[in-house]
């Protein structure tokens, strides 16, 4: 499974033509304790760079952008009950949405893990 990253601190891991999307460990550290996650409805069409979800800490609300265009096929409903998962396991159980890709070519514009780590080091 290939894993990609964006400059806006989203990660996505791609299995076939479905991408699982979440926020990075760096992002959750910056946000502080996550208290609420607002997820889209399954079936919603998203476009690359458009709003896909909202993640809230006590003092901030941040939009999570869709790193790729496509259709939402699944959301992590468990986050509603336990938003702390985003802090505890941001890049595994703390995933947000699954998106069926409409243009796999968009993946080429994203960073790989090494490039993202290097990018974070510059911040």
């Amino acid at each position: 499974m290939a894993k990609f990253f964006t400059k806006d601190h989203e990660w996505l891991s791609v299995d076939g033509n479905v991408a699982t999307v979440g926020i990075t460990d760096y992002a959750q550290q910056q946000l502080g304790d996550v208290v609420f996650v607002e997820l889209p409805e399954v079936g919603k069409a998203v476009t690359k760079g458009g709003e896909a979800a909202v993640v809230e800490s006590v003092k901030a609300a941040s939009e999570v952008y869709a790193p790729v265009s496509g259709t939402v096929t699944d959301v992590n409903a468990a986050l509603a009950e336990n938003p702390a998962t985003v802090n505890e396991a941001p890049e595994t159980e703390g995933w947000f949405v699954r998106i069926e890709l409409s243009d796999e070519g968009e993946l080429a514009e994203l960073m790989d893990e090494a490039a993202y780590r290097a990018y974070v080091d510059t911040l």
Binding site: F36, E56, S57, V58, K59, A60, A61
Partner: peptide, 14 residues
């Protein structure tokens, strides 16, 4: 005071 992310000082135009 809680659930402040609904409010203008955090959410601004949203």
């Amino acid at each position: 005071l809680t659930l402040s992310t609904r409010e203008q000082h955090i959410r601004r135009d949203k």
